[in-house]
Write a protein that binds this DNA or RNA. Structure first.
Lengths: 195, 195
DNA sequence: CCGGAATCGGAATCCTGTTCCGTTTTGATG
DNA sequence: CATCAAAACGGAACAGGATTCCGATTCCGG
């Protein structure tokens, strides 16, 4: 009980630890983003100039590293969703899905993270972002509903469902995800604008 | 050149080989259907009462075994599609997607096979079934188009895309696949029948 | 019944994620 | 600045599972 106050206090990490963690994340973001799941832990360790022990000191499991590396992608998507809400456009849900698809396309590790998230109840860092994202998306839906671009019964869960489907499509390269979005979004619309 | 005619002749397999292959397929169908990808090759070998060497004599790779085990599911789906075409209903595409979803739900190994198929250009046994399936589905689409239940621009590729999405949704258990079908199929309809 | 080819079984190998532990680095203290 | 315990490090050892190898066994045409 000398330098730090009471119990819950997270002690500031040692300088080398912080440095290595940062290097690991940088390497992981680069490699996973480029090659996706096929990247092996030893590769990441080597790219970060670090031993395997260090990898596991910072991330309890491979999956955790994948998630951590994807974290700022989620943050980016969240920011986008909020900006979209601010713009007040007519079809924010479509815009959101397109954006998610594009990000997925540009970062092959993100879909891995999305899938990994299924198993995890609430991962510490992402749990919060996830909740905020849910909130932001529901705002988009509400907005779209008012503009008449989505059916009144569409929920946040539905949008998540579609994101999952898009993610799988991009990950497996099983087809043009934009087409999937188009097919589905037309299904989201309450009625054709008659034109 | 004694018992068999010329070059291309496939010689009849030895009795024990045929028996073991059948046992392997039976075991694989049962185990993969029940537990999906998490089943391990040694389990299948044990269940079939066969050694690992035998597994690999018959199937060059785990993936090949998964595919072979799923083969008659594909055949069943093909048969269903043809029957559906025969019935001449109004919305055969919806019926097809529902059926596929149900089969996927009942056999956890099928989605693994579907995904495995992506990598393979033309696997000998499935290549044929795949082509026939494509033909059958295009008949369904044509029929639905005439009935006005799908947009005129919907293609076989679109339906495959949706099947892939459904498969991923079922496999990861990431949500209610029926809802996904509903959302999407509404997107397939040309226009609300005004009523 | 024989002989050789086709199969078989399962141990050995290889590849990867994960764990362990002796060594090194950090930073609070005197 | 020197000291020392705690924290972090590196990389070798381990573990689980797919795949390969090869000596032993089984089939089948003659």
């Amino acid at each position: 009980m000398s330098t730090r106050s009471a119990e819950g206090g997270e002690r500031r990490p040692r300088a080398d630890a912080a440095r290595n963690r940062a290097r690991l994340l940088a390497a992981a973001r680069e490699l996973f983003g480029e090659r996706g799941e096929e990247v092996q832990l030893p590769d990441v360790a080597r790219a970060a100039g670090v031993g395997m022990g260090t990898v596991y000191r910072h991330f309890p499991t491979r999956e955790a590293l994948v998630e951590a590396a994807a974290e700022d992608r989620f943050a980016g998507i969240l920011a986008f969703a909020r900006a979209l809400a601010g713009e007040g456009g007519d079809d924010p849900v479509l815009g959101y899905l397109h954006h998610v698809g594009e990000v997925l396309e540009s970062d092959r590790g993100l879909s891995a993270a999305i899938e990994a998230l299924r198993g995890t109840p609430g991962s510490a860092p992402l749990g919060r972002t996830r909740a905020e994202l849910e909130e932001a998306v529901s705002v988009l839906i509400e907005q779209a509903r008012r503009a008449g671009t989505v059916r009144p019964d569409v929920t946040v869960g539905d949008v998540h469902l579609l994101v999952g489907a898009i993610s799988a499509t991009v990950r497996t390269g099983s087809g043009p995800w934009r087409r999937l979005v188009d097919l589905t979004v037309d299904g989201l619309r309450p009625r054709p604008p008659a034109g």
